[in-house]
Nucleic acid binder design. Sequence first.
RNA 1: GCCCGGGUGGUGGAAUCGGUAUACACAGCAGACUUAAAAUCUGCCGGAGCAAUCCAUGCGAGUUCGAGUCUCGCCCCGGGCACCA
Length: 805
Amino acid sequence: MKKYNHQEIELKWQKRWEESQVFQAQNGGDKKKWYTLVEFPYPSGAGLHVGHVRSYTALDIVSRKKRMEGYNVLYPIGWDAFGLPTENYAIKNKIHPQVATQQNIATFKRQLKALGLSFDWSREVNTTDPAYYKWTQWIFLQFFKKGLAYQKEMPINWCPQCKIGLANEEVVDGKCERCGTESTHKNMKQWMLAITKYADRLIEDLKTVDYLPKIAQQQINWIGKSEGINITYDIEEADEKIEVYTTRPDTNFGATFVVAAPDSDFVTKNLESFPKKEKVEQYVKDTNKKSELERIAEGRKKTGVFTGWSAINNLNGRLMPVYVGDFVLSGVGTGVVVGVPGHDLRDFEFAQAMDLEIIRVVKDSNGDDSEITKPEQVQESAGTMVNSDFLNGMDIHAATEKIKDYMEEKGFGKRIVNFKLRDWIFSRQHYWGEPIPIVHCEKCGAVPVPEDQLPLELPDVKNYEPTDTGESPLAAMTDWVNTKCPVCGAVARRETDTMPNWAGSSWYFLRYCDPKNNAEFASQENLKYFIPVDLYNGGMEHTTLHLLYSRFWHKFLFDCGHVPTSEPYQRRRSHGMVLASDGKKMSKSLGNVVNPDDIIKEYGADTLRLYEMFMGPFDEAIAWDPNAIRGIKKFLVRVYKLATQVTDEKNQELEKIIHQTIKKVTLDIDAMKFNTAVSQLMICVNALEKAKNVLQETFELFLKVLSLFAPHVTEELWENLGHKESIIKEPWPKWDEELVKDEVVKMAVQVNGKVRANIELSVTASAKEAQAMALTRENVLRNTSGKKMVKVIYVPGKIINIVVK
RNA sequence: GCCCGGGUGGUGGAAUCGGUAUACACAGCAGACUUAAAAUCUGCCGGAGCAAUCCAUGCGAGUUCGAGUCUCGCCCCGGGCACCA
């Protein structure tokens, strides 16, 4: 037998699989479908990361198993290729981003193919392909037609380095997610997508899908639903009203002041009328000067100024001075809060800073209703109402509902549901993205590019740099920008903003169902067959970005009747990062990057795959261990050598172990516990090796199970055993429960909970038999003699515990 | 501060309807083969102790015949959110 030559074997089988097209999914048919999806990569210049290998291999294992179980499996791949890194690379190297993209894709493709992943390459998609983004633009126009894509002049998060507007989700710690520059604000007319219209359903429908709990929870927190009430107060000194939003109207008898955000509508509108106008103006100006980071750096000290006005509390007629304070956020609720310093820590701090009265209206469970003078006394979450007229004695939750009813009845309150989620800023002032297919006409306004003129292709420009005015480089392309209005024919201008890179990835899983269709984004027939995705895997970092956005797009398309389900993904899991051996993130600058090419060359793709599955729990971050991978190679060499031990001799012990292995691996893969599946394969090989002779049938069962993890070497060994058809075509083996069971087990004998001996016993033995055998052991007798036996606990197959006194 | 995870040998980790803690691997040590090394194979491998035995799953209590696993109170680490009213 030849030595295990991984390079030769792997190239041979990769070529065969490609020629035979075994991994292509059928569009429909009698077989049940299974759709496995991995997040398609951004083809960066850095090439494939070993982190990609981890999740793609895991889902490849699931896909291969499903195929062997008889499913028509769709496991596609493509390229999410629009975006800033490529644009920056293009600027730096004076190369067209499309060319750079093509080069990077070629590298990625070669690397992915070298891993033996069972992708259906005939369905490859590329978001920068006009035939693809034609439909991204088309979907945008559907949003526009339904009024869910709209323009708004607003202060947006602005990255002065990238010269680009950022969505809230792209600002991390007040900094641009990409370059780390502190983000500022800028007023710009932006395209927006009304994701907030779907906020409720994006929470509610999580109940209908199987997402990892932490993923669902993170989305719920991000959307941030709160149920409260808007209360309107009259202003004492003027014919004005002020509206506040609160989730705790139960504490309203304890309200002693009102605070409006410096940039709230209330302040903007009434600034001129405030008796203390000058001071307020100065305060608003000072606030504007401060960046968000500065405000946070100030330690959240409460500041504010009195406007000179007071609001009248409808409940008791109390006059509540109206302040302007920057701890109130204009974007939350009405941008105005009512201050209840006894029961909200922020209000308490403000009251102390401004020397305002503090009234207790909730007592705690010990009945403490003393005066509140210290922050630790501020009681926020539970208790019983006091000093609150008709609410007295009620629990705060009951009181909340009662007073909401009361306020609505009296006409000064209105129940409101609020979300933290904001509408999605959809404009980017960049070149390398999908052009937004809109024409601006002086007479007709924003007019969609007619659908039959899609795709609206990105024109070639000389310079990819954003302009200093913040406009996209497309704005400089006068030939392209100047056009005619599709409605009235008058001179008009094209929209020069492009879409964010989240656009193309919001629907790519639909395109895989029918990637060459030029009449629709995908045929209804194919969508009905393949959608929803059965298992979708991706990184936690996409939970509040891509995952939320694509759910939103899918729901919208569902409402329009273009897709068959309201949720795109039935099951969502996530993987942990692969870190460098020093425990840090792999990065070029640290020089700690592991290149899969090197690993494949030295150890082979099968070893790399198996190692990444074995290294630790799939959903946890884990450091690369250059030593451990050698152990995996050793394991595969041993498997390879096992082929020389094949005989026609039966061995019952091995039969038991192989069935235990089939069972464990089957269940572990379903639970995505790949590391323990691999360890079972190792246990199995240890046993097969020790036995010297292995029945061919047993060895073949083992190869089938291993083939998911190490497809190349198992194909080779399978063929060496005389099989003409690929192992991929074999049905997934079933285990025999009778064979899996142990009849005789080693059991521990405990005396007072401490292990004193081991006995071998049939699992069906009675308590009496077990006890009798236990008492034959010297060590058990020594620990029980002279003592009174209180009771004996016997769990068949597990343990016997003798309790003595 | 709030919401998720997690803390087990020298290392990655296994075992959570409570039932022999440390499976499987890596590293290490010893031996075989070899002139030698690599590779391979065999054995050992939580701590203390001659042994019986005792002590060990972040810390402290509790429930139980029995706790890594359950309850309560802490500490630490990672991820997410954060003046959200």
